[in-house]
Design a protein around this nucleic acid. Structure first.
Length: 188
DNA sequence: TGCCCGATTAACT
DNA sequence: GTTAATCGGGCAA
């Protein structure tokens, strides 16, 4: 399967999102299958880019195919894939992986043996992969990032996003149906 | 400069 | 189900 190039991300965030479910994300060789993500767009108030460009969210306003990393609750790091290209300020928050590569490194960083607790959550997966602010604005199509296209088309489900207080009704959360590695189940 | 609060998690009851 | 931890962005003063 081909490694995804920047052009892959240069489309509507809602086209890219379901195509990334089932894709493999590696960071320095550590990672797994993307099973959950959420879309954000500058036209809706839950997005960091909603209020316009600032020093923190500048990467979201740049070209597609780059990583936007931010600090969450002063404790965790979260990683997004910028989509749609300059001006759209759209991105996909990676929320959960099914761990497949570098399990030993993940267990060491996460201080747990339980494979279900390694990457099931946006803050957990960045800790497991070793992603921090140092990696903000890195390109997604060259190391340390590697993103591999999925081999088949999985069943994708959608639902409302998690942990937000604005635009709560938008069904912009995407997941791999039936995965046991989701950060939370999807409501039927 | 000060204050509020968040795209979360883990450890509680 | 509830809550502490922890800190930088964004905005009011």
């Amino acid at each position: 399967m081909p490694r995804l190039k920047k052009s892959f991300f240069n489309r509507s965030v809602h086209v890219v999102a379901p195509e990334l479910i089932g894709a493999r994300l590696l960071f320095n060789g550590v990672g797994g299958i993307i099973v959950e993500l959420e879309a954000y767009h500058h036209t809706e108030p839950a997005a960091h880019s909603y209020g316009g460009e600032t020093a923190r969210n500048a990467v979201m306003f740049g070209p597609a195919g780059y990583a936007y990393v931010y600090r969450s609750y002063g404790i965790h790091w979260c990683v997004n894939f910028v989509c749609e290209g300059a001006g759209s300020a759209a991105a996909l928050l990676i929320r959960a992986l099914e761990p497949t590569d570098g399990l030993a490194a993940m267990r060491r960083r996460r201080h747990t043996e339980d494979v279900r607790l390694l990457c099931s959550g946006p803050g957990r997966l960045t800790e497991a992969l070793g992603i921090t602010r140092d990696h903000n604005a890195l390109a997604l199509d060259v190391p340390p990032f590697e993103i591999w296209a999925r081999k088949s088309t999985p069943e994708v489900v959608a639902g409302v996003r998690i942990g937000i207080t604005k635009a709560v009704e938008l069904p912009w959360r995407y997941g791999l149906k039936g995965s046991r590695f989701l950060s939370k189940p999807f409501r039927p």
